[in-house]
Design a protein around this nucleic acid. Structure first.
Lengths: 208, 208
DNA sequence: CTTCCTATGTGATAAATGTTACAGATTGTA
DNA sequence: TACAATCTGTAACATTTATCACATAGGAAG
């Protein structure tokens, strides 16, 4: 696993890479799997080698609010934070494209902070960028109406898949924005009229 | 400043306390002061000795969305995160009760992570608790209507002042929840009818 | 007391969003 | 082909929230 790891996490020092190779486990999950649930205890910090994961916030009735993507070269900030305190997870993680993960036991996560400068910087940078991303999410729901939130949502998905064709149904979008399908259908039509996108079945083509 | 510092940050080791005393500056601000603005560069990590600070997220039109309180014994997670990367601030901090702060230069913030176990644990714990708090804020706006959001808001203010009399005007609440005064007045009346609170001028008395 | 300022109350109305109900279109599969 | 399942479109209506207009009340200051 060393070569992929080195490629996806280029900032890691050789000593750190060796430590990961000898101590951490690699694990695979298929699209659709839920690899972390709200309320579950977190025992590992998760590094993503390949594939894609979506991170959600859940409410009591089971609604799922989309927060952000987890991609190759990234780590789950929440798992890092919770791991150090042996806390329950506050989020739900769903695999959207088959993933290969590195699972780092929580004691090592902590120990390496002192031993490996590159690990420390990676962890801090992960915290920082996720915190910022979450603040942007707050912006969108606190200050924006649903039409702008939808555009923000679509743009983030384009960034994540790095393509202009989003394989999303209206119902899926509605659930992840915690609204209803009809609202999304109406707003998408308006965006189509404005020339922002073109609708197809199970597929939204972004034009701008 | 050693005694207050020790009392408010009991987890800090003696070596760390000495380092803070010899390297960090103490600074005071009066109620009403804005000590950090969106877009400003952060040069220090802030530890609160006394007083109270409110942290807001701002939008382009100048609306201020309340996120959380900063209290004695706490540190600004955002300043820590941004400081390590010399980033611009994404938040606005307003003093609501005269404060005394310890300003820790960013290089030290970083250096101490490796040198002082108690500093490291404090920083990680600050990240964790703020991240959780921000996730709760997301819950409230993503899943809840304004009436529940208002109750959540009032409870957090009670927790922060540790008393049942909240010195808040309807306009103030409306701004911090990014809605209009009329909406808040109406919802407060409903809460009063339900026996949750009692309204006075510039003062809301929580009963439950 | 009068005047002024701020805080609050409230009705009317508009706009955004949520809900219900149903129809048609597309796809997969027996 | 026939059928079931899913996706999308849309009308009608309810609810929530935003906006406007104006009234009333309390406190501060002259």
């Amino acid at each position: 696993m060393n070569d992929i790891l080195k490629k996806k996490f280029p900032s890691f020092s050789n000593a750190l890479l060796i430590d990961i190779n000898t101590n951490a486990l690699q694990q695979s999950f298929a699209a659709g799997d839920v690899i972390m649930r709200t309320g579950q205890y977190i025992k590992n910090t998760v590094l993503v080698l390949s594939g894609k994961i979506k991170i959600y916030r859940e409410d009591e009735e089971g609604s799922e609010f989309f927060m952000y993507y987890l991609q190759p070269g990234q780590a789950c900030a929440i798992s890092m934070i919770c791991a150090t305190k042996n806390q329950k997870s506050q989020i739900m993680a769903k695999v959207v494209e088959d993933v290969e993960l590195i699972m780092v036991p929580l004691q090592l996560m902590d120990k390496w902070m002192m031993q490996h400068r590159s690990w420390y910087e990676f962890v801090i940078d992960t915290y920082r960028s996720r915190f910022e991303e979450v603040l942007d999410v707050i912006d969108s729901i606190a200050f924006r109406a649903m039409d702008e939130r939808l555009e923000f949502y679509l743009k983030r998905h384009r960034d994540a898949c790095d393509c202009d064709d989003l394989k999303l149904s209206h119902q899926e979008i509605a659930s992840e924005l915690n609204t209803s399908r009809e609202v999304i259908s109406r707003l998408l039509k308006k965006l189509e009229q404005r020339g922002v996108l073109k609708m197809h079945r199970n597929n939204i083509e972004l034009l701008k």
